[in-house]
Amino acid sequence: MKLFFKYKLDHVLFWFVTILFHCFLKSFTWTKAGPFHFVLEIILRNGLLAAVCYFNMLYLFPRFFKKGSYSFYIFSLMLCLVVYTALKNLHDTWLNGYVIGDVAKRNFFLNSYYNFSTALFYVAFTLALELSKRWYNQQQLLQKIQVEKLNTELQYLKAQMNPHFLFNSLNSIHFQIDKANTTARESLQKFSAMLRYQLYECNADTVPIEKEINYLQHYVDMQRLRKDNHYQINFNASATTGNFSIAPLLLLPFIENAFKYLSAHTDKPNYINIHINKTGNMFSFNIVNTKDATAPVYEEGGIGLKNVERRLELLYNGNHELYIDDNAETFSVQLNITLP
Rank of each mutant, 00 (worst) to 15 (best):
L170W: 03
V147P: 06
L157H: 09
Y113Q: 14
E153L: 05
W135K: 08
L150M: 10
Y136P: 02
I177W: 02
K133H: 08
A159W: 05
T152V: 07
S112Y: 05
K144R: 12
T126E: 02
L150S: 06
K144F: 11
Y156Q: 15
F116M: 01
D178E: 09
H164M: 14
N111L: 13
I173Y: 02
R134V: 03
F167P: 03
V147R: 04
H164P: 04
S132F: 11
I145N: 11
L110G: 01
R196Q: 11
I173D: 04
A124I: 10
Q155M: 09
L195K: 00
K144Y: 10
L166A: 06
L170T: 05
F121Y: 10
S132E: 07
R134I: 08
A128H: 00
F191S: 02
L127R: 02
N168G: 12
Q176V: 08
Y156E: 14
R185A: 06
K133R: 08
Q138G: 02
L170P: 03
K179W: 04
T183N: 11
K179G: 13
A124P: 00
S172F: 13
T182L: 13
F167W: 05
L141S: 03
N151C: 08
Q189G: 08
H174M: 08
K179S: 15
Y113P: 08
K158L: 14
I145Q: 15
S169I: 09
A193C: 09
N137C: 10
I177T: 11
N168D: 12
R134H: 11
K179C: 11
N162S: 01
Q143A: 14
F191P: 00
Q198N: 10
N151P: 05
T152C: 11
M161T: 11
Y156L: 13
S117Y: 07
Q143W: 14
N111I: 04
L131D: 01
N137Q: 15
E130T: 05
N162Y: 03
L131N: 03
K133A: 06
N162W: 04
K179D: 14
Y113F: 13
Y156A: 12
F191T: 00
Y156C: 07
L120T: 04
A184P: 01
L142F: 05
A159M: 06
Q189C: 11
T118F: 06
A124Q: 07
M161Y: 13
K144C: 08
A184T: 05
K133T: 11
L120F: 00
Y136M: 07
F121V: 03
S132M: 06
E148I: 01
E148V: 03
E148T: 01
E130L: 07
I177D: 01
Q143Y: 10
A180F: 12
L170N: 00
T126A: 04
S192L: 02
L157G: 05
I173H: 05
A124D: 11
L150K: 12
I145D: 12
F191M: 10
Y122V: 02
L110H: 09
Q138I: 06
N111D: 14
H174Y: 09
N151G: 07
Q189P: 01
T182H: 08
S192Y: 02
M161F: 12
K179N: 12
W135I: 04
F116Y: 09
V147H: 15
Y197G: 02
N168K: 08
K190A: 12
A119H: 04
K144Q: 11
S117N: 04
F175I: 13
L129I: 04
